[in-house]
Design a protein around this nucleic acid. Sequence first.
DNA 1: GTCTATAGCTTGATAGAC
DNA 2: GTCTATCAAGCTATAGAC
Lengths: 210, 210
Amino acid sequence: MIRAMPDDDTTGPGPRRRRGPYAKSAERRREIVEAALHEFSENGFRGATMKAITERIGVTQPLIYSYFSSKEELLTAVLELRDDRGFDISPLDPSRPVESVRALVELMRHNEAHPGIVALHCAIAGEAVTSGHPAHDSFRRRYVDARTRIGAILEACREAGRLREGVDPQRAARIVVAAMDGLQTQWILEPEVEHLGDEFEAFMRTLVDF
Amino acid sequence: MIRAMPDDDTTGPGPRRRRGPYAKSAERRREIVEAALHEFSENGFRGATMKAITERIGVTQPLIYSYFSSKEELLTAVLELRDDRGFDISPLDPSRPVESVRALVELMRHNEAHPGIVALHCAIAGEAVTSGHPAHDSFRRRYVDARTRIGAILEACREAGRLREGVDPQRAARIVVAAMDGLQTQWILEPEVEHLGDEFEAFMRTLVDF
DNA sequence: GTCTATAGCTTGATAGAC
DNA sequence: GTCTATCAAGCTATAGAC
């Protein structure tokens, strides 16, 4: 997300106010985060090294530390980039259940168009199941939130008469969360899974009429 | 799986035959693998250190290297232990589809009784999605095999008239694999998932009449 | 069978010149 | 803003005594 610089006013000619960061600085930062994203995707957080990240963009290690004070802070920036690129279900609204289900399917289609982000998610979420991982709490909250939110949506679908016969909303919510993660993992691991979006939509249609 | 030692005969008193490894040696080995299992469960393979493993059982690092030539070989031994403890679907037989589905549910109940093994599976499978991981190929094959085998079982269920209306066997197989992994992950991360076996059984009953 | 001691390397991170 | 040079700490793994 690009923010306006503090000295963005092009009206005055003289250096009256203290200068903000140059555009080049923001560009470098973006470049570093992008390199880290790829490195984390391919090797996980623990498997990635600062050295490998710098070599991707041809800079030296100390340069990164002038933008991020630690490897962990760099991970935080990478995960924020992921959220900016749409890997987020928090805008889903249970008061519009059918639209929410459609949006969930659209989310998977969006992911299908961004394999790099999916690979990142699988790699970091995978190693974050261990309690000592820097992203552990973040992912645990994410899972709880996803399951709760999807549970509420399915509950609302039932009240709207859109849930298939015999489907339990809370139990189904767990399977939906599992399916979203699991399909993405299988999509990364096996080339046989052709269309993430189609597979997920077909599954959701066994639960909901939307 | 504990195998008989070559000098297991307690009939003769004298050392007539060439001695095999002493019982203590096998016991030490088992102890090391057990310690490694717990360490890998809690920190993953990359996050675990040989030092931490030795400290669990109060021995020194070189001792481990007299049993295993590398950290990676120790991982192999740990994964074999997991298979011995029943984390394996390869005995499932599509020619007996209904029994196979029941066995799959039993497998999850078995896992519920062995949280340590589930934690190990989640941690290692999680970080093994990255292609550079030592267990990557092993887990990739495992996934492909699981999906293929479960697909065949569901196909056989359909022929036996046990598949629910409108369920596509191959697509459902992907979701089943995702559900097995995902439910276990959620069970590790969230205390709210109370019964792994019950959750999985309820899901399978939405697909198959068994 | 187990130890002490340490080699040999890589890691994340810093100091200071330009 | 970027570099060269370097640090202390941590890692896997080995040599050799007992």
